[in-house]
């Protein structure tokens, strides 16, 4: 690194190494970006009121200690207990709080939403793909006029639909629609639909042109090119992305319960507001199991799709 270290290399080699180091690729964009984010981090911890000085106060430490104590199952507190008793308590809590039903709803909410999102992506993505939504499909040299505008509007709508968090979308939809699971399903479907559609449009754009051209040359319409050649060629990639997003969907579906949908978040919030912290911890644990199961499922399906 520095000339002071005896590297055992000759002087001109050391000079050559220094020259190479001076010529290494550097980017102002990267430097400025990292610098700005670093600055934001410093500002957050200095001016954002983040520093937890209150944790040094005795009262909040006592609160914390009490909270931790109350995480232990209530009927078992203050005495030695067996695993059997713990199991009995857990079964009792899950039945009383309907935790298992909530977990069931969470899983299905995620599946319904991701399926709708995938359907939307498969149908809408061709309208946002640079090789299909042009004046003459597959001919980028004639990219003018109406189709160009349509394509940009469609791409813009993909961006817009994923810019808002699921939680905010669900909050708004719950006020507009009568009470059912739809607001949660739609919120997840809209956010993930935007993400999947963007990815699917990019997959379509990167497809080999030959099969699409062949179909077009044989007289296929734009829609036929998109759905008879583009869709089957891109399906594998779409499914991989669908299962990636599925695991995040399960996480988010859990949380939408905080808004009153009957998923795990709802029962967790309920336990917290009753100050039953032991039950809250158990239900969060159930959520962990659910997410890990969804993780494993999505991993297995993706591996199955990949291995020839």
């Amino acid at each position: 690194m520095s000339g002071a270290v005896d590297t055992g290399l000759g002087a001109d080699r050391q000079r050559r190494i220094r020259e190479l180091a001076a010529r290494r690729p550097r980017s102002r964009y990267l430097t400025v970006s990292v610098g700005l984010v670093g600055l934001l981090g410093v500002l957050a911890w200095t001016t954002g009121g983040l520093f937890p000085s209150y944790l040094l106060e005795a009262s909040s430490r006592q609160n914390l200690a009490r909270f931790v104590g109350e995480l232990e199952p209530e009927p078992l507190r203050g005495r030695p207990w067996s695993l059997g008793e713990l199991g009995a308590w857990a079964g009792d809590v899950l039945e009383r709080t309907r935790g298992l039903e909530a977990a069931w709803t969470t899983l299905h909410l995620a599946i319904g939403a991701i399926a709708l999102a995938a359907l939307f992506a498969a149908l809408a993505a061709p309208l946002g793909a640079r090789n299909i939504a042009t004046r003459e499909p597959l001919d980028p040299s004639r990219d003018r006029g109406g189709w160009r505008i349509v394509r940009h509007l469609v791409r813009g709508s993909f961006v817009a639909s994923r810019a808002l968090p699921e939680y905010v979308l669900a909050f708004l939809l719950m006020a507009l629609l009568p009470y059912s699971a739809w607001p949660a399903v739609l919120a997840l479907a809209i956010h993930n639909g935007g993400i999947l559609a963007r990815l699917q449009a990019e997959t379509l754009e990167n497809l080999p042109a030959a099969p699409l051209r062949a179909l077009r040359g044989a007289g296929a319409t734009r829609a036929q090119v998109a759905f008879a050649a583009g869709f089957p060629l891109s399906l594998g990639r779409l499914l991989l992305y669908v299962f990636y997003r599925y695991e995040t969907c399960v996480r988010e579906a859990t949380v939408l319960g905080l808004l009153g949908v009957s998923t795990l978040g709802y029962v967790i919030q309920d336990a917290r507001s009753k100050l039953y912290y032991d039950e809250m911890a158990l239900l969060i644990g159930l959520g962990v199991v659910l997410v890990l199961a969804a993780d494993a499922l999505s991993y297995l399906v993706r591996r199955y799709l990949r291995d020839a």
Binding site: L199, E202, T203, N206, Y244
Partner: peptide, 9 residues
Amino acid sequence: PEPPRSEAH
């Protein structure tokens, strides 16, 4: 055209 970027989680 950029290759598909993986924003998928």
